[in-house]
Amino acid sequence: MPFVRGNQAVVHEIHGARFASYVRPATGSRDLAAWRGEIPAGTVAPEHVISAEEVFYVLSGRIRLTIDGETAELDAGDAAVAPADATLAVSNPTGEPAHFWVTTQVGLSAVLPDGSTITPPWAN
């Protein structure tokens, strides 16, 4: 199944953000997962350590991305790469929602500040 239609995206919500999952094993991908993220205005997601590299591309709005202590505000058209085992934090410092595209490898997990591990369904 090489084509994924918009109405086939599965939406998940966690920590105030929404993730629309398009590419994952259930849609035919063996190695990659990709989703569209939406962070409402003023949302600050918890810092977490990622198990695999993630590539971010901002579609609209602005996000603040911190990777291993280095912070940048990214606007539509900007991209970033977070390496495996990086500490990552995402927030939206503006009054408007932000949308971005993320690609990673299937099997991504993340360790939260309390030590718990999540395996997000949009990446598995």
Results as ranks from 00 to 15, higher is better:
Glu73Thr: 08
Pro93Cys: 13
His15Thr: 10
Gly95Trp: 09
Val44Asn: 05
Phe100Gly: 07
Thr71Gly: 06
Ala26Gln: 14
Leu112Arg: 07
Met1Asp: 15
Arg62Thr: 15
Ser116His: 09
Tyr57Gln: 05
Trp101Thr: 02
Val81Arg: 07
Gly37Gln: 05
Asn124Asp: 01
Glu96Ile: 08
Asn7Trp: 12
Pro113Gly: 08
Ala76Ile: 04
Gln105Arg: 14
Pro120Ala: 03
Ala41Pro: 10
Val10Tyr: 08
Ala86Asn: 04
Ser29Phe: 00
Glu13Lys: 14
Arg36Lys: 11
Trp122Phe: 10
Phe19Arg: 04
Val90Ile: 12
His12Lys: 12
Val111Leu: 03
Ala123Gln: 02
Gly115His: 05
Thr103Cys: 11
Ala34Cys: 12
Glu96Val: 11
Leu88Ala: 01
Leu108Glu: 00
Gly95Arg: 14
Ala34Ser: 14
Ala17Val: 14
Ala98Met: 10
Leu65Lys: 03
Ile67Gln: 00
Ser109Asn: 09
Val90Lys: 03
Ile118Met: 13
Gly107Glu: 01
Pro2Ala: 15
Tyr22Lys: 04
Val23Lys: 02
Ala9Tyr: 08
Met1Gln: 15
Ile50Cys: 06
Val102Gln: 02
His99Val: 08
Pro25Lys: 00
Ala20Thr: 09
Leu32Ala: 10
Gly6Cys: 10
Arg36Pro: 07
His15Met: 10
Gly95Val: 13
Gln8Asp: 15
Ala82Pro: 01
Asp85Asn: 10
Ala110Phe: 08
Glu73Cys: 03
Thr87Tyr: 01
Phe56Tyr: 11
Glu38Arg: 14
Ile14Trp: 11
Ile50Pro: 05
Asp114Gln: 11
Val81Pro: 03
Leu65Val: 01
Ser51Cys: 07
Val81Met: 05
Ile14His: 10
Glu53Gly: 10
Ala52Pro: 01
Ala52Phe: 01
Phe3Gln: 12
Asp75Leu: 07
Thr87Gly: 09
Arg64Gln: 09
Ala110Met: 15
Ala26Gly: 13
Glu70Leu: 01
Pro113Glu: 06
Pro121Phe: 02
Trp35Cys: 09
Ala86Gln: 03
Asp75Gly: 15
Asn124Pro: 01
Ala123Leu: 01
Gly61Ile: 05
Trp35Ala: 12
Glu47Arg: 11
Leu108Tyr: 03
Ile118Arg: 06
Asp114Tyr: 08
Ala98Trp: 06
Val102Lys: 03
Asn7Asp: 14
Glu54Cys: 09
Ala76Gly: 14
Ser51Arg: 03
Asp85Lys: 06
His99Pro: 07
Val106Trp: 02
Gly77Leu: 05
Phe56Ser: 01
Arg18Thr: 15
Val23Cys: 06
Pro93Met: 11
Tyr57Pro: 05
Gly61Met: 02
Glu47Met: 12
Thr119Asp: 04
Phe56Ala: 01
Pro97Phe: 05
Asp31Asn: 15
Ser29Lys: 00
Ala98Gly: 13
Gly95Glu: 15
Gly42Ala: 13
Ile39Thr: 09
Pro97Cys: 07
Ser51Gln: 04
Ala9Val: 11
Ala33Lys: 04
Glu73Asn: 02
Ala80Pro: 04
Gln105Ile: 00
Ser109Ala: 14
Leu108Arg: 02
Thr94Gln: 11
His12Ser: 11
Pro120Met: 00
Pro120Ile: 00
